[in-house]
Simulated assay, not measured.
Amino acid sequence: HLPDDSTLAASAICAPRGEPSAVLEFADVAPVPVRHRIRARLWMAGWFAPEEGHLAFHTTRAVLREPGGAVVVDLDEFAIAEPDPLALAEAQLLTHLADAHPDAVERLTRLVEPDSLHGAVRVQPLAVDRHGLTLRIERARGHGDVRLPFHRPADNVGQLTERMHVLLTQASSASCPRALQRQRTEGDG
């Protein structure tokens, strides 16, 4: 719903056929300060049309760009897609993990292949969803992301807490990667 005097509403009314075309861009920004904080972008092409007292956007094409590349999103699949059940809590969960539990983040690196940690200068939580946690491994020149999958999907924050405890238990029984041992030794001396 837009005010009657909004530029967008005026454009919709005055446009040929009353349907101004537009491209909307949405950016998914990591809540934790990391390099290259934009995790993904979604572009939606379409047009605006006045409908029953409000302005509706009709999508004709959607493109999702993630670090692995871009993909055209099927509009029927997009229309029925459900949000991740942890999406609204993700920012708070990740900032709490990064700020209050840096020791836990470091412990989780024991689940990462040692080669992925080569040259690591910092590891931060980047994303969490019902299927797992993603860590951002920053190096002096560049970065990489590592996914730590949960043993079962988490449908709420209570289940997420249990899934994180399982990962931390697995990490506690894993050996410390050599890359972090060297880094810790260099920092201690």
Rank of each mutant, 00 (worst) to 15 (best):
L2G: 02
D4V: 08
L8A: 14
A15F: 06
R17M: 15
G18F: 09
E19K: 15
A22C: 14
E25D: 04
V29I: 15
V32R: 05
V34K: 00
H36M: 03
W43S: 06
M44H: 03
F48L: 13
P50T: 13
P50G: 10
E51D: 11
H54A: 12
A56I: 07
F57W: 07
F57S: 06
F57D: 06
H58T: 13
V63R: 12
R65H: 13
P67E: 14
A70W: 04
V71G: 06
V73D: 02
A79C: 05
I80T: 15
A81Q: 14
L86E: 03
A89P: 07
Q92C: 04
Q92S: 13
L93P: 05
H96D: 14
A98Y: 02
A98G: 02
H101P: 01
P102F: 00
P102E: 01
D103F: 03
A104E: 07
E106N: 12
L108Y: 08
L108N: 03
L111W: 02
L117C: 04
L117I: 06
A120E: 00
Q124T: 05
P125R: 09
L126H: 00
G132I: 07
L133T: 02
T134S: 12
T134R: 08
R136A: 06
R141I: 06
R141D: 13
G142P: 07
H143P: 00
G144M: 08
L148S: 06
R152K: 12
P153C: 04
A154W: 00
N156Y: 08
G158V: 11
G158Y: 11
T161R: 12
H165F: 12
V166E: 14
V166K: 05
T169C: 06
S175D: 14
S175W: 07
C176M: 15
P177Q: 06
A179H: 08
L180S: 03
R184P: 03
